[in-house]
Amino acid sequence: MAHSDTYLVGREKIREYAAAVGEQNPLCFDVAAAREAGYEDVVAPPMFAAVYKWRAMRPAVLDPEIGIDFSRLVHGAQEFTWHLPVIAGDEITTEAAFVDEAKRGEIRVYTFSSRSTNQRGELVCEGTWTNFVR
């Protein structure tokens, strides 16, 4: 039950995301500043991982074999570990997989993992998503 998706990181998407979360660092907006710092283009803020991972994660979470009732789903916990920068122009491939299901009182807890690599096959970010179903 693994799902894979490749996300092409756009410069304007990074700028749009950075503005939406209030990130003001020039590395995320200004190509010249990013190049001066040694990057080829603007740099994604770390939490942009939630965006490039979601298209692989969504079908994992909605997999009918797991059978989560989406209307009763609550995002319970989230973990990310970043390994390498994500730069505009990168193609990020994410593999998302169901890890396990547990019962905690009246709540069912579903855990999913994700692993994202860039176009050079280098690991850029790992994530763990914990969902509660009420």
Binding site: L27, P46, G76, A77, Q78, P85, T128
Partner: peptide, 14 residues
């Protein structure tokens, strides 16, 4: 630290 790439990991409970 003035660097969005300085974060190595973050975990939270909502």
């Amino acid at each position: 630290v003035g660097d969005p790439l300085a974060l190595k990991s973050l975990s939270v409970q909502f």
